[in-house]
Design a protein around this nucleic acid. Structure first.
Lengths: 129, 129
DNA sequence: ATAGTCACTTTAATTTTGAAAGTGAGTCGC
DNA sequence: GCGACTCACTTTCAAAATTAAAGTGACTAT
């Protein structure tokens, strides 16, 4: 039981990161925990993109298994949890900023400023030029 | 036919980037085009991670539709193509470097130096600590 | 008691993926 | 000319992931 449980496709760091974060939802959950003050299951589920409950549940489990997210009960009877990034989870911020920058420059998405908590540039309506 | 053909889930730049690049294979194709001198269908298919031919075909189409990759025939009868990143495609290098850095630090993957074309740090065998 | 909240889990249809085999246009060896 | 081979895909089909919706269990509020 003390063996590493995660098997990777290859030794490549990019492939390993994609094994773990390479889907359409995981980083959006991280984004909401990181910048948008969403910490309960309900808040995370209510984001703009509307992740399905089963996927959110599964993604939170994965992120917890990876040590990127931790939860604590904020209430007993019934138990309710608050999810938060760990220090390791917070290390994803640079990655998120880079992805946001690229999406802004190339796909016309909005630009959020974590310092002020405000959207600095509006998204364009269409897709890429 | 001049309408933007890509529909995004939301205005968020991160969500848009994930709409387009958020899967387990696309960025590996970009990696191979960017750094590993793989430019034919066959070379791309033969990478360490063994992408299936149908997925490679579909991913190349998507990357071309996005203007990140272009191909040119390097031979007629039969026509054979060489795929290469466009300038816009090359703009993904910083992203790739960031992802590699994170995967190295947190998942024990290898570190590749694009300047020298060499692996600077070996991957560890197991998963994350 | 009845309705509502929250954090999920279950179910079932649809979509995506993955592995393998197949296709078409040609080249090579003999 | 014939069979074997290469390359760049496409097709097929089973398995896995996603989606939307409904259901569950433990409570709280009226």
């Amino acid at each position: 039981m003390s063996q590493p449980q995660t098997q990777f496709r290859s030794r490549c760091s990019i492939a390993r990161t994609l094994d773990v974060l390479g889907d359409k939802w995981t980083l959006l959950v991280v984004r909401d925990l990181m910048w948008h003050g969403k910490h309960t299951f309900q808040e995370l589920q209510a984001s703009e993109e509307h992740i399905a409950a089963n996927l959110l549940s599964e993604r939170l489990k994965r992120l917890m298994a990876l040590g990127l997210v931790a939860r604590e009960a904020y209430q007993d009877r019934p138990v309710r949890y608050r999810y938060a990034l760990t220090d390791e989870g917070r290390s994803l911020e640079v990655l998120l900023l880079q992805i946001m920058g690229w999406g802004h420059a190339h796909l016309g998405g909005g630009l959020f400023d974590p310092q002020t908590g405000r959207t600095v540039a509006e998204a364009s309506l269409g897709g890429p030029q």
